[in-house]
Design a binder for these strands. Structure first.
Length: 512
RNA sequence: GGCGCCGUACCCAAGCGGUAAGGGAGAGGUCUGCAAAACCUUUAUGCGGCGGUUCGAUUCCGCCCGGCGCCUCCA
């Protein structure tokens, strides 16, 4: 059985068939970089990453394209959210482009922490204005546009299937008009392709165009850039559920209006992360970033694990209780993997081809879960299953688990017990001495002294573990073990300019 | 007003016509001087409520109750 995905186009689970056998063109909506990404945003990118990983796992050659929206409302509302950081950014940088660059770097730093693989192509809207202009010219030539009040609009009445994916009905549009309709529009659903009259007084970025100096409408960027890197027809477009009705609907109209061909075959939409009070937004407060979580003592991968526990198409309720649970769970997972690794005594995990039947069965079930519209919760259950199952050797368990982790991205294979050498040698010697002293006290049945030593060490963040083989010590969980060294997701972003990534042709970008 | 989603054990969360995955937490056990850690075992005759279809429904249909999202350049 092959991969089945829930396609918003048709609202059903569909067998995935790429345009070109074995290859997948995948465009995922990226961030708007005028502020930090919050953890709700990051849920989306973990989903897109899971999709890209799953496709590769299933043997497809994937070209994953992500846009960076660095044009639009960069000037207007930079004072919302976390003002201090924004202000300092504004002070340190001189242009909106640099602010965009600042948040782009912050975004990719978060992605790296979450073990999200960098897309093959990352493209900035500001570097593709020419492509957008040519796309708009094609639309103009095909008769889909009109100029009114200084802006160029897309005329949805000329595009009969407008709103099909979202189930919009053009003749009922007036019912939904609770916001003031732009008087220049012929139809409330019409949208701007090119602005020359900026909504924002101090719109900083402007380009010359056949319609005058101005800047592109938001929707155009995705159409133009996706087609540039993936061709006029490609396989998958993913994004947030909120984009179905407007953004993606408009993208479809623009793209198909320009080419006259079907544009994207599969539309995948991720559901929201919601808070007790409702969804996360800047205005309503509760703007949590990855940094909020890591400052509170969680690791980024705890959050990834938390996300993997729910299906991407279900709303997921965020809570610190839930995150605590995910953290405890992941720690236990990490501990188990490390213990199995130690059991191997430096040996290698079993290659897939020679796995024992029980481990193999888990892997088959895992693949089935992934193929069933990316059911990461079930996939996770299989991971646990293979790690806990009696009669599966450490080598077999790890062989299967590491393979599964290619999709899950929990950094299992690169886990390593914190080397004793990493601890200050003087401290290590002192701890060893105390442990030895306690052993002597225990032997003499001086439990008072033995417990005193144990309590003292505990207060210092050192945990003792007694076992038949003797006593060992380790540093408390906050430092123990779980930070993977993520291959390919290194902080190269701090140095690299987004434009470099944007200029890289498909396929040749460095990937993990 | 229009469109859509969801309600499963103490918590998170799968399953979506054949008799309830997984994790967390709790409980019991092994080990221990006692703990901790680790490991093992265990926890829903039940899936918001009421009807209906069916040999059979958590899974399909209807109604009701409760919660949420989108229709604003929000993921």
């Amino acid at each position: 059985m092959g991969l089945r995905l829930y396609n918003t186009l048709g609202r059903s689970l569909q067998e995935f068939e790429p345009i070109q056998p074995g290859k997948v063109g995948f465009y995922g909506c990226g961030p708007t970089v005028y502020n930090y990404a919050h953890i709700g945003n990051m849920r989306m990118y973990v989903f897109e990453d899971t999709l890209a990983r799953a496709l590769r796992y299933l043997g497809y050659e994937v070209t994953h394209v992500m846009n960076i929206t660095d044009v639009g409302h960069l000037s207007g509302d930079a004072d919302s959210g976390e003002d201090k950081m924004v202000k300092s950014a504004q002070e340190r940088h001189k242009s909106v482009l640099e602010i965009a660059r600042y948040y782009t770097d912050a975004f990719f730093a978060d992605e790296a922490k979450l073990n999200i693989l960098r897309p093959d192509v990352v493209c900035n809207a500001t570097e593709h204005v020419d492509d957008m202009i040519s796309l708009i010219r094609r639309l103009e030539a095909n008769g889909y546009t009109y100029f009114s009040g200084g802006n160029l609009y897309f005329d949805v009445s000329k595009f009969p299937s407008y709103g099909e994916m979202a189930g919009l009905k053009l003749d009922e549009l007036k019912a939904g008009a609770r916001i003031e309709v732009d008087a220049n529009k012929r139809n409330p659903y019409d949208f701007v392709l090119w602005f020359t009259k900026s909504k924002f007084e101090d719109q900083a970025l402007q380009w010359d165009s056949p319609w005058g100096r101005g800047y592109p409408g938001w929707h155009v960027e995705c159409s133009a850039m996706s087609m540039k890197y993936l061709g006029e027809q490609f396989d998958i477009h993913a994004g947030g559920i909120d984009h179905v009705a407007i953004h993606h609907t408009n993208e479809i109209a623009q793209s198909e209006g320009a080419t006259g061909k079907k544009w994207v075959n599969y539309w995948l939409h991720g559901e929201f992360l919601v808070l007790d009070k409702g969804k996360m937004s800047k205005s309503a407060g509760g703007f949590l970033t990855l940094k909020t979580l890591t400052d509170a003592g969680y690791e980024a991968l705890d959050y990834r694990y938390f996300l993997l526990g729910a299906h991407y198409r279900s709303q997921l309720q965020f809570s610190y209780d839930g995150l605590d649970s995910a953290r405890a769970s992941r720690r236990s997972l990490v501990e188990r993997v490390l213990a199995l690794r130690e059991k191997l005594h430096g040996g290698e995990p079993t290659p897939l081809a020679t796995l024992c039947p029980a481990a193999k069965a888990r892997l088959v079930a895992f693949k089935a879960a992934i193929e069933d519209d990316l059911s990461t919760p079930r996939a996770l259950a299989e991971l646990w299953g293979v790690l806990k199952e009696q009669g599966v050797s450490a080598a077999d368990a790890l062989g299967a688990a590491f393979d599964m982790d290619r999709v899950l991205g929990l950094g299992l294979e690169s886990l390593a017990r914190e080397a004793q050498a990493a601890v200050d040698p003087a401290l290590a010697a002192e701890l060893d001495a105390l442990v030895a002293e306690r052993a002597v006290a225990k032997k003499a049945k001086d439990y008072k002294r033995a417990d005193a030593i144990r309590d003292e060490l505990k207060a210092r963040g050192v945990i003792l573990e007694d076992s038949p083989a003797g006593t060992s010590w380790k540093l408390a969980p906050s430092v123990a073990g779980a930070t993977p060294s993520v291959a390919g997701a290194t902080p190269s972003v701090t140095g690299a300019t987004p434009s470099v990534a944007g200029a890289t042709p498909p396929g040749s970008a460095p990937r993990a």
